[in-house]
Design a protein around this nucleic acid. Structure first.
Lengths: 177, 177
DNA sequence: TATTGTTATACTCTATAACTATA
DNA sequence: TATAGTTATAGAGTATAACAATA
């Protein structure tokens, strides 16, 4: 079972690499004389570059964190558990915008890998408190470092002040739009 | 069959509304005393707000363009056809990052709705040149206006200069990262 | 009666292999 | 042989309904 998940992550990373290469090739052919199609006005609608940037960032994140076999979604769960101990499944899932039924299988994977554990709440025996294990904390610590390299490369591309501005605008859109 | 697609778009729009309301409720409870979970360091990784912003923008786009029953992906196809006449399926799909096998069903939908048409190329009888129909141009024209309102609301939120900077950074990430 | 975790299920997206008809 | 469009298929992601245990 752990192998299935490992394969899923590896395959996602492999696909990410393929897409990157295809894009790189496009840029090269644009430089020469092969005539790529024009996005035109489409590139002026925020949704188009936003979606493409999101795919690119997730691709790169996946590749950077591949040694630890963590998807962006799994990383976000571990980060949230670390920061918010003593919370139940519903609270964690809801904060991340994951529907409760879909969070079950996600937690099954993380728990089967020994990264977190479900514990019956003493107060409310319906609830499962989700806790990070020592292994989970260790893996998260290493994941943070790999993800930090990914972020550093982005900062290199945009510049530190621009990256901060980007982060602020994206957060504003996510919470206020 | 057209009904199936219409339902799919309607349902996506309905879900978008639900998510917006849930998020609005969260903000309200944050304001009062219900104690939402802390994203913490997670919010400092670009991927997290980027993904949430992308979902929000697509939600809003879907709602704004709902009268015309167009998804962001369908809109992008029509925009590309309008700007790049005489291209075949492979070229259009590749430019949008859509895999050729997946583009077949997508075009089937647009063609069955009378928005575009496949024409055998005279030069290379393997190719299908994809053309916008008059109806397709008409629908696209109206879609552009609805989408422009959506964009205007975003500009209102961020400010015109900031929105331009955001667009530039997202495009840079999509093409250079 | 309402809520938590869960199962079952379905629909969309995305990805690969392989076929056909052309080149 | 190679390419364009297509089919079949499989895997993620995301959505809803309903059930058991508990409140």
């Amino acid at each position: 079972m752990a192998d299935l998940k490992a394969m899923a992550v590896s395959r996602a990373a492999a696909n990410a690499v393929k897409r990157s290469r295809a894009a790189a090739k496009d840029l090269a052919t644009d430089g020469s004389g092969e005539a790529g199609l024009q996005p035109g006005e489409l590139a002026e609608f925020i949704g188009y570059p936003l979606k493409r940037a999101q795919l690119r960032i997730f691709e790169d994140f996946l590749r950077c964190v591949a040694p630890l076999q963590l998807t962006p979604a799994q990383f976000s769960v571990l980060m949230l558990l670390d920061r918010n101990p003593g919370r139940n499944q519903t609270e964690i899932a809801h904060t991340l915008g994951i529907l409760r039924p879909n969070f079950v299988a996600m937690l099954d994977v993380l728990e089967s890998r020994g990264l977190c554990a479900r514990m019956r709440s003493a107060n409310d025996r319906r609830s499962h408190i989700v806790v990070l294990t020592d292994k989970g904390r260790s893996v998260l610590s290493r994941a943070r470092k790999l993800a930090a390299k990914h972020e550093a490369r982005l900062t290199e591309l945009l510049g530190s002040a621009n990256r901060a501005a980007l982060l602020a605008m994206l957060s504003k859109i996510a919470t206020e739009f």
